[in-house]
Design a protein around this nucleic acid. Sequence first.
RNA 1: UGGGGCGUCGCCAAGCGGUAAGGCACCGGAUUUUGAUUCCGGCAUUCCCAGGUUCGAUCCCUGGCGCCCCAGCCA
Length: 552
Amino acid sequence: MSTSEPSSSNFIKTIIDEDLESGKYQKVITRFPPEPNGYLHIGHAKSICLNFGLATEYKGRCNLRFDDTNPTKEDDEYVEAIKEDVQWLGFDWGKEPLFASDYFEQLYQWALQLIKKGKAYVDSQNAEEMRVNRGTLTQAGTDSPYRNRSVEENLELFEKMKNGDFPDGSHILRAKIDMAAPNMNLRDPAMYRILHAQHHRTGDKWCIYPMYDFAHGQEDSIEGVTHSICTLEFEDHRPLYEWFLKELEIYSPQQIEFARLNLSYTVMSKRKLLQLVNDQHVEGWDDPRMPTVSGMRRRGYPAAAIRSFCERIGVGRSASWIDLSVLEDCVREQLNETAFRRQAVLNPLKVTITNYDKIEQLDAPNHPQQPERGSRKLPMSNELWIDRDDFMEDPPSKKKYFRLGPEREVRLRNSYIIKCEDFIKDENGEVVELKCSADLDTLGKNPEGRKVKGIIHWVSAQHAVKVPVRIYDRLFNQENPDKAENYLSALNPDSLQVTEALAEPSLLEAKAGETFQFERVGYFTVDSKDSAAEKPVFNRAVTLRDTWAKMK
RNA sequence: UGGGGCGUCGCCAAGCGGUAAGGCACCGGAUUUUGAUUCCGGCAUUCCCAGGUUCGAUCCCUGGCGCCCCAGCCA
């Protein structure tokens, strides 16, 4: 499956090691429990790598379980997308994925059990009344007037709720715990609400649906999960998680919380990502600018890069902010190994080689560090395109600059060394063409007596193919978009720039999903949606590291 | 001002009473037909602050300070 992931220690492994050693558990069973109400994002990837990673490392199992307890927000489209993403990330959940909805009957029976035990009651206050009577952070709540209904009455009302005799919101099943509890979650939390909604799997079979708190622990219990790993916000829910399992007298897994991922220049809430999609600020969940797994896949981020990112950032309990550049660096790390090298010019400047009048098919390696991966033919002629950035009429520092300039020499990547003899300007004073001479004795070898440090990429004008290229930048231009008055105001208007590249002809054969390094520029992936045979459209996954840009 | 957490290098993160791992970033230097990659070297006398216990504290105690989460019939 995935390559070697050494994986450093973290506090969760310490807990598991202790549990294994003390004999509390003999095996490790985890689970990844997404709600199918949106696409997976990089934050989910962290949880996936953690949960599946632990299962692999301890030779246990990790279940993929859809937490589909709220039919008003869930959809099969999301189920399918989530399955694809988990698989693509390189993980295996075994036979079939599991669903909370498969446990609805059992959950219902358990609710009856708590009612009979006097631990649950049907409340008939409306939502507003419940809110008011819940109290505040510093004031205890007050008991509902319906709190002491008899078991019989509760049973009867709950039965009617189940049968669909009541409209949404008219009644609710609550756990009878303590309206004065300092932990708000224990102030008689809701267990079941009435929802006359079509469920993506059970259709209209149910009119009542369990709340997260009344479902999650029992789901874990049914599946024999040993370590139920979730994010920090659920820490306050743990006493409730344990309360239900204890009152139900069933096996109680251990919940462990870790800090969720925060990535700079992006938002991570599904609600906001959904809004970006619905309001068409992006082209869809898999828009290459989205922090979704599918967006990153389309952008050209390899699964291995996402895994190594998750390994690199570690797992802890303190709120952490990871810079987007860390992710990009993981992408480079992978792509540098795997991507074939090609030449393409994004911002063309014409060059005429004055002493060269033939056409040659030069040999250029697919990957200089991996010669066994072969080579391709690179056509060379006397009219070329190079990148505008590689010429300066007046270089700043004679010493530090080693690109093209008047009287300067430079190596054409995979070709000859050329010297700029002259340059031509248009009426606006802009350089439009360079006249260069080539040292014809420098193909595949260095000249004697002088060193030419600069190397530039190029493409033969008559052979070049025009290909659409999409340059992506961060979706937001504020480090923490959530800190803006409205996160939408932090959207980067220039996050997508559509342009064209003049590319070497071999790139015409590029297949959807393939990634190439355009030498000295960056990594570009053939878009899987908008490309056709012989008509590749390229997405820039990430630039190359550029220390020269930093020096300037 | 109720409850639950967190605070170790610029960013993550080990450490669990015996004298500060590692990764990334950064800074040097070497190799290089990608100013990329690779390679070598450097990079916390100090662990939010102040007291205390101890032969010895990042780890224990006390008191501060700062930050995060909780008042959905969302998960």
